[in-house]
Amino acid sequence: MTIISMLLPLALLLATGFILGFIWAVRNGQWDDVDTPPQRILMDDLDSEIHPRG
């Protein structure tokens, strides 16, 4: 199963990447507010000065 010695580090690397992404997101305050973002996506059309149809 020599292949494991390649797959496992790769998978761990990927996991590490995700963990770093996660840490970045937390420190960046991405989830300090989890109430407005889901609302905001509904308003992205209204937010503009020219209101598109639809």
Partner: peptide
Amino acid sequence: PKAIKRPIYSYRLSI
């Protein structure tokens, strides 16, 4: 959410 015009039930859960 766009189609139903209301936010996702729980944004926390989605994260």
